[in-house]
Design a protein around this nucleic acid. Structure first.
Lengths: 277, 277
DNA sequence: TATACTAATGACTAATCGGTCATTTGTCAA
DNA sequence: TTGACAAATGACCGATTAGTCATTAGTATA
């Protein structure tokens, strides 16, 4: 597990410097200080590496955004907090941002295209949730347009973090974009993006996690872990999926056990969604 | 010259399908129906091909935008016309948009990074010019932010054209974004992007075309051409750069001769800037 | 027809790629 | 110390790459 992380981190560095196709497995193993054979003990192919990396790096990002959006901020500050956390992430992880937000070689590999589209859709859902909380039904017709504007602001202003490392006032940036977002939300009258359009674009992603895929995901995680508390929590949750037994509090506690360890962030997030917590 | 164009067009198709690194020279020559040797008669290396392609495809785009921005539209419709032409271009040339706006492998090659940054800066200048015409000094503090918002709208809504080919109402889209832009321009009070920031980001690009680089550019174009009118116009303009002789009208006419042929769009654009026409 | 020239070819090279596997190294309990 | 097992190695494989160059095809002039 640690070996996998080491490889993913060094690979990220190299992809960020040279791009995915231009980076060889040899180069990755050299930077890790391991042999070529050791690489293929962790990942079956080079493609499997990049798929794992997409999960590893994008999950954290999505979870961060979702946590802020569903957090206990008041209406005056939620937009500012949202933008602050987004750009803080861009600043702290500019290498992964460079690789996954810019190098879209990935889009030529079908499996990765679906994966990234699914993450994009997840992000869209979080933004829509935030807008609904903020403006309620005042935004019925235009909320998808406002969501697209927010994503546009992110993409445009991200270049400040991705292509240079100058010192920037995150607080000021967040305030500036929060104001712009609020202005757009309050004054826009001509919508263009409809719900149908959004679902059409996000088509490849499953609407909700099915019981079977979740069980499969659990098993994968159980197999890959050796830690005791986390493994036990995973197994109990797996049983709970197959045959509901415990109360909400216990389930929440088990999920919280997982959330404490970054490795299980994603499975915790998916479980919370499945159990409506 | 025709051979070069053929190669660039077929290469664009393949890059759009598979990405740059994943496409071999062999594949390109096969799709062109020429031999490998013939390819290397037109381009010294694979990298030289992609550099030429960036010029070939981005020049057209930049010139289109500049033409609309400096065109004779009235203030009510200029924003709508701007967005219409942008997205019409995305629709008509979705393959090149996919390659050059998404696949940023290019950013790992220094020469291309500078080139693309320079084109980005050119685009920014056009947008700023439009905003100054539209809002005059009402937008002094916030014009760079509004420019970043416009670029964000472009990036965000472009995905509708780049990743699918559903039928979209361009007129409605343009109106929707024009309204959003106008709202932002009128109501934004908290600026973040300063002129210093913009020039810092655009650093690699030369501020103005120097006499020498323009002369060099002219010579290159003269060597590559066989057409009579265009060649004569180029030679006369080159003499004019070295020793001013003719009136503005004559110069404008010579530039117009070039503008008629797509191959000389860029050199015409640069000359017009140099002679302040 | 003969000559001179350019345009085009594709077999070839050296290097590098992703991926494999017989072998070695390290780590336990007995 | 021994034997059993897992972890790690790197020489090796076939395939593919960008780029070269001796050769041929095509064309225009004399």
């Amino acid at each position: 597990m640690l070996k996998k992380q080491l490889i993913m981190e060094k690979a990220l560095e190299l992809f960020s410097e040279q791009g995915f196709e231009a980076t060889s497995v040899q180069q990755i193993t050299e930077r890790c200080g391991i042999s070529k054979g050791a690489f293929y003990l962790s990942f079956k192919t080079k493609d499997e590496l990049v798929i794992s990396m997409v999960d590893y790096y994008l999950q954290q990002f999505i979870i961060d955004v979702d946590r802020v959006v569903r957090g206990k901020y008041n209406k005056e500050t939620i937009l500012v907090e949202f933008y602050k956390s987004i750009f803080q992430a861009f600043k702290d992880h500019s290498a992964s941002a460079r690789v996954f937000f810019n190098e879209k070689v990935f889009l030529t590999k079908k499996e990765l295209f679906y994966k990234i589209t699914a993450y994009e859709a997840e992000m869209s859902k979080s933004i829509i949730y935030m807008l609904e909380q903020l403006y309620q039904d005042k935004l019925q017709k235009t909320k998808y347009d406002v969501m697209y504007c927010i994503k546009g602001f992110m993409k445009s202003y991200a270049e400040l973090f991705i292509f240079s490392d100058m010192p920037l006032d995150l607080e000021q940036l967040a305030k500036s974009l929060a104001e712009k977002t609020d202005i757009i939300a309050r004054h826009t009258t001509i919508p263009f993006i409809t719900e149908e359009l959004v679902t059409f674009i996000a088509k490849p992603c499953e609407q909700d996690i099915s019981k079977d895929t979740l069980l499969q995901l659990m098993e994968q995680n159980i197999d890959n872990t050796e830690d005791s508390i986390e493994k036990e929590s995973l197994e109990l949750l797996k049983q709970e999926i197959e045959k509901p037994t415990y109360s909400k509090a216990i389930i929440k506690g088990l999920i919280e056990n997982l959330r404490l360890n970054p490795v299980y962030h994603w499975i915790a997030y998916v479980c919370a969604k499945y159990f409506n917590i």
